[in-house]
Structure formats: structure tokens, C-alpha cells
Amino acid sequence: MYRARKTGLIKKIMRIKGMGAALTAFAGLVVIYVAFGIMNPMVFSGQNILNLLRSMSKYLLIGIGQSYVMITGNIDLSIGSVAGMSAMMTATLMTLGVNPLLAMLITMAVCLTIGFINGVLVGRFKLPPFIATLGTMFIARGAAYIVNGNRNTDNIGVVLGKDAADSFQNFFYYGKILGLFNTFWIAFVIFLVFYFFLSKTRTGRHIYAIGSNVEAAKLSGVDVVKTTVKTYLISEFCGAVVGFILCAQAGMGNMEAGNVYEMYGVAAGVIGGVSPLGGSGILLGTFAGAAVWQTLENGLNMIGAQVGIQRIVIGVMVVAAVLVSVIRNRKD
């Protein structure tokens, strides 16, 4: 008969599925970071580290949302446009004099509606997620254009006054707690909550089950529609928060905000070992993936690589990361 083996803490951690891939991504992160640091020691400076943590937060949030959806075997192409819509909508409302908190609440409600629509189209009506979210992607971007009459917004302080605008901007972007930028803390808290939700709760378990085998999940009594809707709600929640951050950063709404972020989210997840085919991956990996992504961008900038070169390097990295995970899976 099988008896529980006595295992140490390390072994126990390594038994968590997806941990191997996540740790590999962290190892890759260290290598990349050190390599850039050798080429330009400024990479190691405290200021740069602070900035890195702040800018990776946006990718982390998008990555979390996208990972939830990818683990069910679906995809969310709309999340970047939702971020853009969120930035434009909060900014527009604030330029109309709406109090920032209320502006955010209204915006969040609209974003979650998009998530609900995504979830119902994919879960209930079985639309291919690629198509369903392609549609909502255009819709959300269209809405971002329309809210302020096809123009970027004015500074959010024009009606509200400088103080209100500053406190909004500090809360999401420029302020610091314990020496780190608020942006990072916000993303980190959201990360912890959703990490817990995915790995420790019933819904989290159902998310993995659906991605692994929908039919089996359904026959076991899992509510596939509800669970799918939840993943898209989480995804668009993350998109909305990124929109707030983008709005706070610029102090205004930009119609192109969050452009192609959905793909950065896919990349962060995939680099961290979240399989786009569903069923596997953990958010710790997404964390590492977002950090790798941001470090690459930052490092390439710091060594003065051209934009074209940056894109190519990043593209190669994504393919390489997936290739490594595919080869590793084959060995298992």
C-alpha cells in the first residue's frame, strides 16, 4: 500500500505543480538582470530597481488576469483595450468634475460588464474565446475613443483642482510606502489575493479542472459557465486597475493607453509556465514572467538598443520560453 513519504519542506514546495517552471523563470530573471548589469552598472542602481518594480506592476496585473483565463484554456484579447477604456473613462469623468472614487467605481462596473459578456459568450454560448474577445477588444477600444469625443482628455486636475488630482496620481503611481512605489504595492496585494484564490479555493480548483478537461469537469458537477464568467471578471478587474494606473501616470486619459497589453499578459504568463492550452501554471510564474519582461525592456533601453532590436529580442524570448517548457514537459 502507498504510505505518505516523509518529505522536507523543499520537496513539498517542488511538488506543487508549476513550481518548476516558475522557479526556472526566476532563475532566467536573475541571469538576464545580471547580464544587463554587467553591460551597464546603472541597472543595479537603487533608483532603477524602484522603477523596475513600478513598471513591471502593470504587466503583472495584466498577466494575472490573462493567466486566470489561460488556465481554463481560453484567452482574453480584450484586456488591453479594457485597460485603455478604463483610463479614458476615469479621466473623462474626472475632467467632468466627478469625484475620483466614484469615477473609478463607475469605470469598474463598465469593465466588469465586459468581463461578464466575455464569460457568457465563451462559457454559455461556446463561442471560441479568440473570436469573442476579439469582438469585445474592438468594442472596448471603440468606447475608449468615444467617451471623450475622439480626443485624449485634458489634465484630470482642470475641474477637480490640483489637490484631488495629485492625491489620485500619488495613490496609484507617484507615492511610496516603505520605500517602494504604491503601484507595486497595489499589484502585489492583488497578486497575493488572487494567488490565494487560485491555489486554495474551490473555484480555483475548478478553473484548473476546466482547463484540463471540460467534459470531465462538467460530469463531476462543476459549473463550467459560472467558473468561466468568474475568470473573465477577474481578468477585466485587473484590466480596469491597470487603466487607473495608466491614467494616474499620465495625469490624463490617452486613447491608445494599454495598446497590445493583452499580449504582454500572455507573454508574462507563458514565460512563467502558464500553458495557453490550459490546466497548468501558477501565478508565481506569472510574477516571474512579468519581471523578466520588464527587465528585458528596461535593460535593452539602458544599453541603448534600438526599438526594433528590442522587439526582436523580446519576441525571441517568448518563443524560447515556450520551447523550454514544451521540452521540459515532454521529458516528464
Partner: peptide
């Protein structure tokens, strides 16, 4: 009807 990515216990108690 098994979720191949989940472990044995997770499959047994699915749902």
C-alpha cells in the same frame, strides 16, 4: 473522464 493535469485526490473530489 479525468483531468490529466490534476492529481489523483483533486480528481476524486472534483465538484
Amino acid at each position: 473522464n479525468m483531468c490529466k493535469d490534476l492529481n489523483v485526490s483533486e480528481n476524486m473530489f472534483l465538484g
